[in-house]
Design a protein around this nucleic acid. Structure first.
Lengths: 140, 140
DNA sequence: ATACAAACTTGTAATGATTACAAATTAGGT
DNA sequence: ACCTAATTTGTAATCATTACAAGTTTGTAT
């Protein structure tokens, strides 16, 4: 994902330009913290006071369809969104709930039982305790 | 997961025995198709006509807490449940929606960027088209 | 610049899965 | 057989997401 020209990026993907769409994409590019719909909505509402949550949902749906954004489903009650960069895994700390990225070559491991399957999308995520939370726990 | 004695399996995990719990666990053991709450509910209701969906939710929550059952979150609008056997990956066909298991050694790939993270749970899933659906498409 | 059709945004209402809660029932130990 | 604690049940509440229709904006052709 190149950030220099998000407008062009949208046009390339047949997504018409609108102020809201650009701001949402900008937010995702500048805040790569895997935000929820609410986080996106609340933050952009500060600059676009008339923003509707429906617009956030609609735009995210479009961005996902066009491959600019990726959905992260780790917990069943919260959907998060990630601007697509390259293949990477996600680690969610069960204590502070932060989601960290990690590098992984998704083609490196040998799998067994998927002959003749057409694989279009690979996802990997871990759960556990992040270093900071682990350190705090030790002190207790 | 040994299926010979599900009652004992429950007792070992400090889960009190109840008819409903046993039937739900039995269902998961005999139908390893990654069912949704609704599928579980509708099927067991046939034999326990007074069954409440709340019981299904409560029981699944308990079974997950005690590590007998695993949650599968692939799509954000459907939670599925899987009786824990060994580490394995899931493949979801985007056409027929079936979820297939595949073997993968979750310790085999090299990851980068998780030093000092305590990893408690590893998940991997792919999406794409299964062989059957791929074949049907070719004919069109 | 202007006009028009198509696309986008907005707000409200509807949907659907999950959880909260309190009363009734059941299980396990004495 | 009794008693307490745990479980089940049904209804109501909650929360995220989607549907929909009206109003607004955008892109294009003139």
């Amino acid at each position: 994902m190149r950030f220099e020209n998000l407008e062009k990026e949208l046009k390339n993907r047949n997504i018409n330009l609108s102020y809201q769409r650009l701001k949402i994409l900008e937010y995702l590019a500048h805040n790569q913290c895997h935000p929820t719909v609410d986080q996106i909505f609340i933050n952009i509402q500060k600059s676009i006071t008339t923003l509707s949550k429906t617009t956030v949902y609609n735009t995210l749906k479009k961005l996902v369809e066009e491959g600019l954004v990726r959905v992260i489903n780790i917990e069943d009650n919260e959907t998060r969104y990630d601007i697509v960069t390259e293949d990477h895994g996600h680690f969610k700390c069960e204590n502070c709930k932060t989601i960290f990225d990690f590098n992984v070559n998704l083609d490196s491991f040998s799998i067994n039982g998927l002959d003749n399957f057409r694989i279009l999308d690979k996802n990997i995520y871990f759960k556990g305790i992040c270093p900071e939370c682990a350190q705090v726990n030790e002190k207790n």
